[in-house]
Design a protein around this nucleic acid. Sequence first.
DNA 1: CGCGTTGACAGGCACGTTTCTGCAAGGCCA
DNA 2: TGGCCTTGCAGAAACGTGCCTGTCAACGCG
Lengths: 362, 362
Amino acid sequence: MSRAETSRRGSRPGRAGIRDVAAAAGVSITTVSDALNGKGRLPDATRRHVREVADRLGYRPSAAARTLRTGKSGLIGLTVTTYGDEPFTFTEFAYFAEMARAATSAALARGYALVILPATSRHDVWSNVALDGTVVIDPSDQDPVVSELVRQGLPVVSDGRPAGTLPVTAWVDNDHEAAVLDILDHLADAGARRIGLLTGTTTDTYTHLSTSAYLRWCERVGQDPVYEAYPAHDPCAGAVAADRLLARPDRPDAVYGLFDPNGTDLLAAARRYGLRVPEDLLIVCCSESTVYANTEPPVTTLSLKPRRIGTAVVQLLIDAIEGEEADRPVEQVIPTELFVRTSSQRRPPRTTVSPPRAPEEK
Amino acid sequence: MSRAETSRRGSRPGRAGIRDVAAAAGVSITTVSDALNGKGRLPDATRRHVREVADRLGYRPSAAARTLRTGKSGLIGLTVTTYGDEPFTFTEFAYFAEMARAATSAALARGYALVILPATSRHDVWSNVALDGTVVIDPSDQDPVVSELVRQGLPVVSDGRPAGTLPVTAWVDNDHEAAVLDILDHLADAGARRIGLLTGTTTDTYTHLSTSAYLRWCERVGQDPVYEAYPAHDPCAGAVAADRLLARPDRPDAVYGLFDPNGTDLLAAARRYGLRVPEDLLIVCCSESTVYANTEPPVTTLSLKPRRIGTAVVQLLIDAIEGEEADRPVEQVIPTELFVRTSSQRRPPRTTVSPPRAPEEK
DNA sequence: CGCGTTGACAGGCACGTTTCTGCAAGGCCA
DNA sequence: TGGCCTTGCAGAAACGTGCCTGTCAACGCG
């Protein structure tokens, strides 16, 4: 009857196993497992009794054993691109934080947890964690980690359409080209004659698509492109590039900055050159930061909706993990949102507390 | 000789097990395990041969099986406080992102990976992941999750000294009281006569310590406290609180804001009331954001050094995991850093490109 | 030549689950 | 009353490692 009394020789005293619960409840291991997992056919009395005994012993099933047996770990990798030896870059802070936050919530709601795994992780770390699938943020062209994960048969969903022929299970992205064209039209509508671009020297898809959309728009409307590119992972280089852009002989009268800090970079550069915003210079930048609602003047921003992207990526991944695999990759496009503020409007709206002034037409 | 040919019946074709490697190399399972893990006594020829065969078969040891056998998963929990149903709050974005980034790097360098686990996670998620230890960010007074982890014997290291009697293994924190006193002295040195505080309504340790240090400082120098408290997790409430603070009859001539967006909040409120910074109002806020280097004017910020905190927390945790447990909690204090900029200096330094003006003394 | 020693491997158990199979008891129907 | 289905549970086989124990040959030494 009681072969396994309390615990066997090597067991940690703090951890009760399923055997201990079975012995304490006077039932078999199978009955305990079925009672706790809601399986099998047991009368409610037995089920309740087993649950009660398990609670009393503080029983927690071993995640490792369960993973080994079922093949599911409940863990999702969150792979972030690395710049140098840092997991993510300064300019992506707000985007990444919001995206990770939403992804964490979405995963949690379906019983999964997120593991942060930089793309340049040592190989032993990657193989040391049992993943059910992976989210990849902006995968580079021939990421060895991603291709190996795919080769192992793990579902991979990427934030940003995969570069090259990376065979991901699904991807979620904005329509970056449409967003850029929309902003350029918005600036032109506000009276801009020569629109400049602050862009990056990196080769990621976002930078590439946005820049080429800008170049095509310039060609379409017959404007010479005016842009400065800088290494976006350098927190200081943006201010220098903004300065360079406004110092050019063909100084633009409107600028769109692709990265989060470009708004303050451009505002500072405009002040240095005595340019008024928005009278002399229209400014828009791509940012998720809330500071641009309170700058002087408030800056129009493009939001890539990282919350929706993070949620969508995780949903698609878990669908792929739990359901049967789709035969072809699922693609999902998340609309962007433009928060129009003073910096891109020719006639700034009156601020709340400022004293009344004579109306000025331009 | 070849009992286990390629794989047994149920095995996934993509995944080669240690048995397959042993069979392909013509050795036993023990020899494969020893050869790959650098244990046992094997001639180099055998070791190399086994490694080569394992590589050829694309063998990856099962993380779940290894965890089950060794009791170590190589996973560290990163527990973040939750506001509502969101893992972390808006005002902590930059701090959390930097801290998580540093923690991820530090963990990775020692072969560990981080799992994001909000404090309000469903219980099944917590017990479903095998953790070797946990980092807790600013643990609340009687966090049920933390106390249960401690009861299970898992090492727990907290960012922020634990409130109440939470028995953590170690903690890392800044000297928040000294930092606040330092800032207040700095503002007083710059000429401030009445220093206000923008603080939070939450009960976390950071807010509590900082506010009480402010109140004690006021008592010491004989100034009436002037402060406004607001729910820091609300992204809009900060601007309103800053406005309230400057609308008071006993309007302060200097303000320290405890949270990241307070700098722009205060700048915007100052503009609304026609106050010049720093001539009429000195501003300092606690922030890790780089935008304050380029605002108008640049804002003095206090950095809590989240990179150093994240690194230290992970180092202490892994030390506790791998070494023997210390008998008493290890405490580590990280110094803060004050980046003095124009907003807290009575005589602002000349900006680079601005036209020369007549020197003005005040 | 017997014997202890050492190198080089093989066998097999244990980690803690999940789950397939099986078995006894009882009710139902022909 | 016997065969069959249902109920309530137990036994035991995996899952894939790590590691402890054991075997066998070679070898030096008295």
